[in-house]
Write a protein that binds this DNA or RNA. Structure first.
Lengths: 341, 341
DNA sequence: TTGTAAGCGTTATCAC
DNA sequence: GTGATAACGCTTACAA
């Protein structure tokens, strides 16, 4: 019931040892004899001492905390990335502070301000879909606080980006539809100021061209790829002149939402329209037919991004511009002319 | 390119105004004339000043940060709770630091230690499935740092718990199966040292008894309700002597996993076995047949828990022991003898 | 190996 | 309304 805040000075007084020695002992410095170290540690636990990180961080100008900015933690892909980040961070003695931008630039700016004020040692960020300028990242440069982008790479200040090869993955996905006989393939694209979605579009176009299919602008539909967008997109697809026999969506959320709309409206998948998504969301394997989709190494991406950031915090490593991970297409029922379970 | 850390002293020097006045101005104290306030603010932005929260927090012994401990952020229910927490926290000027226990007591203990060291102003926690002792919460009492439980209530130190009425929800769910003609209903239960799962079991038993169905111990199956558990449970159910015509699962994860196993093995749902889950996971509406499930006000739960905690941090409110929210059963195809979409 | 003393950046308590 | 000064709890030269 004591409202104590036991400090090193309390331990110091209790033992008649100077607080500097206590500090050293608690930090396991080799400059303290093991005898006194033991005495101090014992007293510390006895009194219920807990280091005050605030004071310590202020003094050392290190927080051992990294900020993680994520568009939306409820997306399975991102929550797996976060788990990977946490794993690596904790292994290296870093704490993680997670913030959701909810795809809003305004929130993202506020978040960056708080992270700055809290003097995080580094930031891992997947920029929001609204982010077009990087002004809110500038201050970090001045402070020498490293930033690493994950999933959505950015050409900014020579920062490292960790992602998959979106062009190639997109190319594969589109080509798969072509191999399955699709000739009029719609692409559900994301905001085109985001490099990631540009690359997915480019991969799509490139695959079309390789197979002698001309890129038809009316078959490219740009949205934020939310569940609501999925329904709107599905409606549009149904009304496209000349018909559509395939869809390559830049995420599963929109693909699944569209699929559900099609099913409710009697459009047979994959017989009438084949669909390929992106992210391998848990729903993609449950929906019927199951959704063909691009699988990314999400957990690993988190680990690698965290490792890269920590290396930069320790400034032992030179910055790698881009770390590119592999990905693979998981073929399921939604894209095959023969129905699979 | 400057490696500056602009402090109030820099502003102080630049203007020939004492740093204490600068501090007051930056905190919008009424004891500074608006003229000097304007001058200081202008200089601050000019120099790119950012408050050092570490120093400020150390001095004031307040961090305006609350720790959130969550079993697993990838669970839709929890990520929605988190969104609710963040919303309310930010509105009230609090930062949120999210930590995953991954249902491990060991991790939970480590997390609590870090939160303590970081001197969070309060903690919101949904205890892990392994948590049987509360020793790791003790230190918070000594520091006078309030703790609020959410989703999984606990009788500990007079702390507030925010949850739904699990007994009632469970009762409803089970009764619904009975109304649909089920006589041999299996319950997929969670760890019974957790109050939440005790209450769900009690609700199940109570509903059975009300309708003259005896509680059969062999129909109660306790696991951690993971996806893997769902498969194991489904196998067991198929082999239960005397057969089974209904399942009430304490979460959707296990229910959905079991459903998928049943479907692959030719067990027809709901004709042969009706199923009801818990949490209204996004998958529950996509799977076929869609899953009848208990819907909880997740986002709201987060808001309310955060509000309760913040009130206690400000010590303006007396502690309410328990805050109980409503819930409702969403009836879908998995529990009706007539198939629904 | 241990002690002394200064300081991290901010705010609170006095004065004036 | 503003200024001087001490203090929050910890770390780290430097001294002993």
């Amino acid at each position: 019931m004591q409202k104590s805040e036991v400090t090193i000075h309390d331990i110091s007084k209790a033992l008649g040892i100077d607080s500097s020695t206590v500090s050293r002992a608690l930090n396991d410095s080799p400059r303290v004899s093991s005898k006194t170290k033991a005495k101090i540690l014992a007293k510390a636990t006895e009194l219920g001492y807990r280091r005050n990180s605030l004071a310590s961080n202020l003094r050392t100008n290190k927080t051992y905390t990294i900020g993680v900015v994520v568009p939306r933690i409820s997306r399975n892909f991102f929550s797996n990335v976060i788990s990977g980040i946490e794993e690596t961070a904790y292994e290296n003695g870093y704490n993680v502070i997670i913030c959701q931008s909810l795809e809003s630039l305004d929130r993202e700016q506020k978040i960056m301000n708080t992270l700055l004020s809290n003097r995080v040692d580094g930031v891992l960020i997947s920029i929001s879909m609204e982010t077009t300028s990087f002004k809110h990242l500038e201050p970090f440069k001045n402070y020498g606080t490293p930033i690493v982008f994950y999933d959505r790479p950015c050409n900014y200040g020579g920062c490292t980006s960790v992602s998959i090869n979106d062009f190639e993955a997109s190319f594969m996905a589109t080509e798969h539809l072509i191999f399955n006989g699709c000739k009029r393939i719609v692409h559900f694209g994301g905001p085109q100021h985001i490099e990631l979605y540009q690359n997915r579009k480019k991969g799509y176009i490139s695959a079309l061209e390789k197979h002698g299919l001309e890129f038809d602008k009316t078959l490219f539909l740009e949205t934020k790829l939310t569940e609501e967008d999925g329904v709107k997109l599905a409606k549009k697809v149904i009304n496209i002149k000349g018909g559509v026999d395939g869809i390559y969506a830049a995420n599963d959320t929109s693909a699944i939402s569209a699929m559900r709309y099609f099913k409710l409206n009697g459009v047979i998948i994959p017989d009438e329209i084949s669909i390929v998504g992106f992210n391998n969301d848990p729903i993609s394997v449950v929906i019927e037919p199951s959704l063909t989709t691009v699988n990314q190494p999400d957990f690993e991406m988190g680990q690698i991004a965290a490792k890269a950031l920590i290396d930069q915090i320790k400034e032992k490593k030179c910055k790698t511009k881009a770390l590119v991970l592999g990905s693979d297409l998981i073929v399921r029922g939604s894209s095959s002319k023969i129905r699979l379970s």
